[in-house]
Design a protein around this nucleic acid. Structure first.
Length: 953
RNA sequence: GCCCCUGUGGCGGAAUUGGUAGACGCGCUGGAUUCAAAAUCCAGUUCCUUCGGGAGUGGGGGUUCGAUUCCCCCCGGGGGUACCA
């Protein structure tokens, strides 16, 4: 009888002692790099959903190793982060301490599943020896700018030299603001002025920016950390606020990040998400004169063709020109409106996008083509951050402009005749130009080109490409992150530390609450902040994505003190061949990693343009959420719970759903799920605030431990509400892999996770089904042993049928692993073992290859059988069984015989039978004859090896 | 709203290029074993049926000798994104 507990323990010890999973950088074999998205070690530990991707990647890694690759399959921890710091604020426990404890727990849970990670390569982003290099890469970004002409990052010194020699004349560089000055101007500027100008170009730069400020978390957040106007972590409100912040100029790489997506083996959905996030749009930059002002109003439009229909302009309320152009008459009204805008949270602003608000500034712009004066408004619907923060409004061809014009009674001029395009909507780019001067009669695409040409000719605009992508805000007002390797001198000029001064480690603190004035807790460590030479250290820390943007490179050479990784290691491992992780990192982590990688590539520091060749997104393992209905209003001061059946008959408004621990629910997860008396007792013990509550179901009423039955009902049957949802502490439905492994063993757990369905798909966890996998492994074991546990493998010749079973499995498993279909691999193993069992096969020549085939999935039992079969060394060093198609050949094939596509009979023909023979035999088949009676056979289709179809009329 | 994914027995799912729909597992039913239960083993299990058959992959239409698979329209579920000019 197979005992997984002892065997798995024994084999894990064997692997540990023999360093079976240690990977060398020095190998003649081809490399293969399999990476899992490393976890943030949360206090909750792992639930059964987390290891899904790790198991799939582990199977793939082990398979690759067996087929002759030197496989890198490392694991580490994204160890900096907010939760540990929030916990520190609440409890005073240092984040380093709680993080270390959480990591120890994660490690224990991971070890329990039998992964082939090379733990000697583990990285932790909060380790100073790791973040030394995070800081170093940041400094490289600080010391570089992006040259649009050569499409590459270049040293900031090159830029300085260029400024000194020619000013901005020849500069085409990514920057926050277009600047123009001569070489003389540059020479005459003060050191501080020069430093400010350079900041305008650095890839890591500091600037006053409108940021997502989260008061509850006491920090700013990047755009991808904000969802629906609230923080992704914790769901706290976020407001827009101008602050002096470090940012990374990811926008400089927008075009390359977009273009290089094409060659990646990522899902279309994932590529789409990235390209939507980058959000490229082509249009025109246009300058409008402002009546009575020297300033010009710059706008971006994708519809330069509609410029004759531009009857007003709208600025974002935060636009710099608002203050300048507002007339005395309108000042009060504008101030009132600005107050209103300020009072609105980001969330409110996003939730009622249909509401039209705005105010007239009193100023007028001049439409450069019609030369008419058009009013300038401000309005919430124009965003400071996109384009130039100002638009030319064309109410005839834009829905938002149209609503705005309606509300404020502004002129609408039709400029496109869409009568040739029935069904076209206002915003569709089709039609013939009208009321548009020289554009009249042109089709829209031609008109766009002609309008741009005209703007260029008049020197008031040009073609322009705009991206939705924003620069990544890189400062966090937190403690538990990488300190910036930056000091400010007395003039406030930022200086990067030298490599010798790295790592710049965090100061010790015992209070982790934010300092006053929206400052990081680091600001309180005055000895740390103030340097002896009068300089001051930056007190913000880096965001979560800093350490995770390059960790995959560190695994290649994790202990290197001289570089983030050696050139040899980088040249050997190159890039990640297969990356597995969740979709939640679609735009954050994956985009920033690609950006850093491209920058490092520009500097010649990594050999590839992209870090992750192939990406697979594992689905979520969901849990069952069980809840009971409670009446919102107490009855006689007592809570009242009712059966789901009763609740369904009444108004849903009257009830709250209280989540209940799934362990208390009978038949949980089904539409029959219910609570009996025992369940209710468990529930009220767990939630004592409900110990006096009334529980009413169709059968009767339960109150304070007593059940009063209606009629002669046996007991309470309080129906609960079941749904499939997230597995989380919050819903009391978490299943811990440790418990499953304890009961069934790691091999069973691994195979069952795979057996649940395709790795990419989300699916609910249900422990009930696991017995099938457990009995499969037992049946596999029983092939080697008799009833009395004697090892009975024979050296006899395998039969043709036995070989066919083995080779069918080899083919299926090999092909399915390659296409990452792990669930069907498990089925294939079950089929093979069931068949061999029927044949009572105990032949070494069958069982040994089968064991190697199984090893990636069930490594413990496979290792055990490998040893029992008398092999030396580990099964991991075995050779993957080779497929011999000869064994799969059939002498005869069963054909479906169909009439008009409907199967009517089956018949077996020799594999080498000719089409004619098959056709003749099929038509003569008795079962078919019955159906053919009285009908005319029009055609017979025979697909050799497949089927026969008779067409009758 | 837009974009992407998805919809197959009681349940998880299989069918890789259009070719026997429901592999494999759970559950369920019956039987064997057992004092009994658990465990194990064997058989059955898409639905309807007057036992001849008939229907069937979210619904409707189309292409085809043949459609879960390809095309069009609609509906449900999940995810992303949203005054993006």
């Amino acid at each position: 009888m197979y005992n997984p507990r002892d065997t798995e323990k024994k084999q894990r010890k064997y692997w540990e002692e023999n360093q079976v999973y240690k990977v060398s950088n020095d190998s003649d074999k081809p490399k293969y790099y399999v990476l899992d998205m490393f976890p943030y070690p949360s206090g909750a530990g792992l639930h059964v959903g987390h290891p899904l991707g790790y198991i799939a990647s582990d199977i793939f890694s082990r398979y690759k190793r067996l087929t002759g690759f030197n496989v890198l399959h490392p694991m580490g921890y994204d160890a900096f982060g907010l939760p540990a710091e929030q916990y520190a604020i609440q409890t005073g426990v240092h984040p380093a301490k709680s993080t270390a404890e959480n990591i120890a727990r994660y490690r224990e849970q991971l070890d329990n599943i039998g992964f082939s990670f090379d733990w000697s390569r583990e990285v932790q982003t909060s380790d100073p020896q790791y973040y030394k290099w995070t800081q170093w890469i940041f400094l490289q970004l600080f010391e570089h700018y992006y040259d649009n002409k050569s499409k590459t990052a270049r040293s900031i010194d090159d830029l300085k030299n260029e400024f000194a020699a020619h000013g901005t004349q020849n500069i085409d560089a990514a920057c926050s603001e277009e600047l123009q000055f001569s070489a003389d101007d540059w020479q005459n500027k003060s050191a501080k002025e020069q430093a400010e100008i350079l900041m305008n170009y650095r890839l890591a730069y500091r600037k006053e920016t409108f940021v997502n400020w989260c008061e509850a978390l006491g920090t700013v957040l990047a755009n991808d950390e904000v969802k629906d106007g609230v923080s992704e972590r914790g769901g706290y409100p976020v407001e827009r606020r101008p602050m002096l912040q470090w940012s990374l100029r990811v926008t400089a790489y927008a075009e390359r990040l977009l273009g290089d997506l094409e060659n990646l083996e990522w899902s279309d959905a994932m590529k789409k998400m990235q390209s939507n996030w980058i959000g490229k749009s082509t249009g025109a930059q246009v300058f409008f004169d402002i009546d009575g002002h020297a300033e010009k109003l710059e706008v971006f439009t994708t519809r330069p063709d509609t410029i004759f229909g531009a009857t007003y302009m709208v600025l974002a309320p935060e636009h710099d020109l608002v203050d300048i152009i507002t007339t005395a008459d309108q000042r009060a009204a504008i101030d009132t409106y600005l107050d209103y805008v300020k009072s609105r949270s980001e969330r409110e602003r996003q939730s009622d996008v249909k509401a039209v608000t705005g105010e007239f500034t009193g100023a007028y712009a001049v439409n450069p083509l019609t030369e008419t004066k058009i009013p300038i408004y401000i309005g919430e619907y124009v965003l400071k951050d996109y384009g130039t923060g100002a638009i030319m409004a064309v109410p005839s061809d834009d829905d938002r402009d149209n609503r705005f014009a309606d509300k404020f009674g502004l002129e609408i001029i039709d400029v496109i005749d869409k009568s040739k395009y029935p069904g076209a909507t206002r915003s569709d780019k089709v039609g013939v130009m009208i009321n548009s001067g020289f554009l009249d009669g042109m089709e829209v695409p031609d008109a766009i080109a002609a309008a741009i040409a005209k703007l260029e000719e008049l020197n008031i605009g040009k073609e322009q490409i705009t991206y939705r992508l924003r620069d990544a805000i890189y400062s966090r007002q937190r403690y538990w992150g990488e300190p910036f390797p930056i000091e400010y001198d007395e003039e406030g000029i930022a200086h990067g530390l030298s490599l010798d001064d790295l790592p710049l480690t965090l100061p010790e603190l015992d209070d982790f609450k934010p300092a006053s004035g929206g400052k990081s807790p680091l600001a309180r460590a005055e000895d740390w902040v103030n340097r002896p030479d009068g300089r001051r250290r930056e007190t913000d820390t880096m965001p979560g994505f800093a350490g995770s943007s390059w960790y995959f490179l560190r695994y290649m050479d994790p202990h290197n003190p001289e570089a983030f990784a050696s050139r040899e290691a980088l040249n050997y491992w190159q890039d990640v061949d297969l990356y597995i992780g969740g979709t939640e990192h679609a735009v954050g982590h994956l985009l920033y990693s690609r950006f850093w990688h491209k920058f490092l590539f520009d500097k010649g520091l990594v050999p590839t343009v992209e870090p992750f060749k192939k990406l697979i997104n594992q689905g979520m393992i969901q849990g069952v959420i069980e809840s009971v209905y409670m009446e919102k209003e107490k009855t006689d001061g007592v809570n009242r719970f009712v059966c789901a059946g009763i609740a369904a008959r009444n108004d849903a408004e009257n009830y709250t759903q209280i989540p209940i621990h799934i362990d208390y629910v009978r038949e949980y997860g089904s539409d029959k799920s219910y609570l009996d008396i025992d369940s209710i007792k468990k529930f009220t013990d767990w939630r004592p605030e409900y110990k006096d509550a009334i529980f009413e179901c169709g059968n009767g009423v339960y109150h304070k431990g007593v059940f009063t039955a209606k009629d002669d009902a046996a007991g309470t049957h309080l129906m609960t509400h079941s749904e499939v949802g997230k597995m989380s502490k919050r819903w009391y439905n978490v299943v811990n892999p440790d418990d499953v492994v304890e009961q069934y063993g790691a091999d069973t757990f691994r195979m069952y996770e795979m057996f649940l369905g395709p790795v990419e798909q989300s699916k609910p966890w249900d422990t009930k089904g696991i017995s099938g996998v457990a009995s499969f492994l037992r049946k596999y074991y029983d092939l080697f042993y008799d009833k009395n546990d004697n090892f009975t493998v024979s050296d006899g010749e395998p039969s043709k049928d036995e070989l066919k079973v083995l080779h069918t499995a080899i083919k299926k498993v090999r092909d399915d692993i390659e296409r990452f279909s792990m669930n069907t691999c498990v089925s294939a193993f079950m089929v093979a073992v069931n068949d061999l069992r029927k044949m009572k096969c105990n032949k070494r020549e069958i069982l040994q290859p089968l064991t190697v085939l199984l090893a990636p999935f069930a490594p413990h039992i496979a290792e055990e059988m490998w040893q029992q079969l008398g092999n030396s060394g580990t099964v991991n060093d075995a050779t993957y069984p080779e497929l011999n198609e000869e064994y799969l050949k059939e002498d005869s094939i069963e054909y479906p015989l169909a009439i008009n596509g409907k199967k009517r009979a089956t018949a077996t023909f020799a594999a080498d039978a000719s089409k004619e023979e098959i056709e003749k035999a099929a038509l003569a088949h008795a079962d078919l004859q019955k159906h053919l009676e009285g009908k005319t056979v029009r055609k017979v289709i025979v697909v050799p090896g497949r089927m026969v179809n008779v067409v009758v009329g």
